[in-house]
């Protein structure tokens, strides 16, 4: 594949928390390249550094060393190279968190359209897009409900809709299907796959769910902060 097709390019990324006695090496020199349209599963035991790697790619966490390039732009090389990380996240990155993190004071629909509002979409079109996504994820009937009243699976699907709303090219998901039954999990994975090809996006998802392994193009294993070949 041509280098223009690389959406995520991580080289020699290391991250440790703390110093001395309490030092934890969460990532030790990780190299990872993800291409347009790819759907990748990040596997590994608890504490192996999966969330840390996602946070580094999502520009939430500064690595201690290494270089990160997103969609052809260098964003980290020993230090952040861009000052507008939030705008970058808004435009390029969609997060699906381990905890769904919906805003409690907004309805399901508003939780999705708020992203579009921030991105400058007209309110009406933002609402329409939010409705479409929620309908697709089979939570359209809960659009006017606040997160406190949603079941775990419903909340997770709303969070997925939010992550996809602004058509990001890099979708990072931390156990996106953990709260879903297997039927819905397949559905979500199908949606993510379709999205990846339609929007020329890539998806990196942490998962333990063996039932959906077949929906991924590549499985990547992390152990003690290192990528190991599968």
């Amino acid at each position: 594949m041509a280098s223009g097709d690389i959406l995520v390019d991580v080289r020699g990324v290391a991250k440790h928390y703390g110093e001395g006695e309490t030092r934890v090496d969460a990532l030790r020199s990780v190299d990872l390249r993800v291409h347009v349209g790819e759907v990748i599963a990040l596997l590994g035991p608890s504490g192996s550094g999966k969330t840390t790697l996602l946070n580094v790619i999502g520009c939430i966490l500064a690595p201690t060393a290494g270089r990160v390039e997103l969609d052809g732009d260098a964003v980290f090389d020993g230090k952040w190279l861009r000052s507008d990380l939030r705008r970058l996240r808004l435009d390029k990155i969609g997060f699906i968190f381990q905890a769904h993190n919906l805003l409690p004071f907004l309805t399901a629909e508003e939780n999705v359209s708020v992203v579009l509002d921030l991105a400058g979409w007209p309110a009406e079109r933002g609402r329409e897009r939010a409705r479409e996504l929620l309908d697709y994820l089979e939570v359209g009937h809960r659009a006017k409900v606040k997160p406190a009243l949603l079941s775990g699976g419903e909340a997770q699907r709303v969070a997925i809709a939010r992550a996809l709303a602004n058509r990001p090219r890099i979708i990072l998901a931390d156990e996106p299907t953990a709260a879903l039954d297997s039927g819905r999990a397949q559905l979500v994975m199908d949606l993510l796959r379709k999205l990846a090809s339609d929007q020329k996006a890539c998806i990196i998802a942490v998962t333990h769910d063996e039932k959906i392994f077949d929906r991924f193009d590549r499985l990547i294993h992390l152990r003690d902060g290192r990528l190991v070949d599968s």
């Binding site: 939430i60 939030r86 435009d91 990155i93 997060f95 805003l103 708020v114 992203v115 991105a119 939010r162």
Partner: peptide, 15 residues
Amino acid sequence: KQIATLKLIGAPDRT
């Protein structure tokens, strides 16, 4: 925590 979420989804300081 909600403010952190807003930052995470890309809300500017202005918001």
